[in-house]
Design a protein around this nucleic acid. Structure first.
Lengths: 205, 205
DNA sequence: GTCTATATGGGTAGTGATACTCATATATTT
DNA sequence: AAATATATGAGTATCACTACCCATATAGAC
């Protein structure tokens, strides 16, 4: 789908005011919405989970470093792609950042063009993540709307058991299974059995 | 499944003979099979794709650097997890390595214990990759065994069309669709429709 | 020219699933 | 006490799928 750059928010977090401001201006000039912060805590206090975007993050900051913020975000399951920027950093920091899922780790001074490319990549990734999480939530909600008995039947249906087989397994009439199965299709909002399988493909065995 | 360390092969590639030999000994002592090489080309000439394992790779080598070897392996679609080791390296190299899929990037001198943990991680990843690739190949082979007409019918079946609907779509009798469908189930080696969907879940829409 | 694979079409019988209708029992909520 | 949700069971009719059987036509391989 076509996305508008103004729909996306790029956070810039750097305790160096000059860097933070100039980067913010640069990124803003390419059309993105930008919010600049001078500390990790400020970012945490102002982060808005509803808007897709990414985070340009300085590694060395006090009292909370960029790497510590990354850990905190991971612990809180906040999925915002991070592009680290660093003045005089070590390979060890870079490894730590990447192994924790960073998009990139750029040393100052870096080519602005590369940063912009990485921002594009990061935002795309964030959008995909959000789309997938959203779809998973929808499906999860539908599953939660099933009763315990219906969930049992659903599992058997997915495994390929016929209604009669399920009836024997559960020790009840196949007519009851038929009724449960009908309710499952209603609550899962699908018409065909194949739709049900496609809906559940991420969760499947 | 339980795996034996001797079933896995750790390649060590470093043009520093002392490092290569001592690392090989260390890794061998923990139970893995090890092959040491002193150049990227030597590794390429001796790499055996049949054995699960990983690659400990020095960054700076002549004439082919570790990063160049990584690119070459990617281009040739050789999926062996790489743990880079480096004497005096730059963050830029580290970023390049990680963005190309490296498991880790360790600066010498590094903690041997960490290397061994990363080797374990890398080999696990390689085994998972191989298992998945193998399963995909099996499924792909079964799909290839279908005739063109059967593939057409399969696509419609997955989409949830009934035999009669497919018959109308393709302008032929529903009896022929039934025959195709039977052959599809035979060739795909499944009994239930749900099995077919589960088999194809990775490929699905 | 025969053999094989592919694609086509049909009959019949059995099994499976769905869509209606009807009904009862229990537990929880209001 | 009445209403709702959950779980249970059945009758009947219709539709969908499978498994047998039968058959024909065409293209390519040997």
């Amino acid at each position: 789908m076509p996305t508008n750059k103004t729909d996306h928010l790029v956070y810039v977090v750097d305790d160096d005011f000059a860097v933070c401001d100039s980067l913010s201006l640069l990124i803003q000039a390419t059309g993105y919405r930008v919010k600049g912060f001078h500390s990790a805590q400020e970012f945490l206090d102002n982060y808005d989970n509803k808007i897709p975007g990414c985070l340009i993050l300085d590694v060395r900051m006090q009292p909370m470093s960029g790497l510590e913020l990354q850990d905190k975000l991971l612990a809180q399951k906040i999925e915002i792609p991070i592009i680290f920027i660093s003045g005089h950093s070590r390979v060890l920091d870079s490894s730590k950042a990447f192994r924790s899922g960073a998009i990139d780790f750029l040393e100052k001074p870096f080519d602005n063009e590369i940063l912009l490319v990485r921002i594009e990549e990061a935002i795309q990734k964030n959008i995909e993540n959000r789309t997938q999480n959203f779809e998973h939530e929808i499906i999860q909600q539908r599953i939660e709307s099933l009763t315990l008995r219906e969930k049992d039947v659903l599992i058997c249906v997915i495994k390929g058991f016929s209604n009669k087989e399920i009836a024997i397994l559960m020790g009840i009439s196949h007519r009851t299974i038929e009724k449960h199965r009908g309710t499952i299709m209603l609550k899962m909002q699908v018409q065909q059995f194949s739709e049900l399988m496609i809906l559940l493909k991420e969760i499947l065995i």
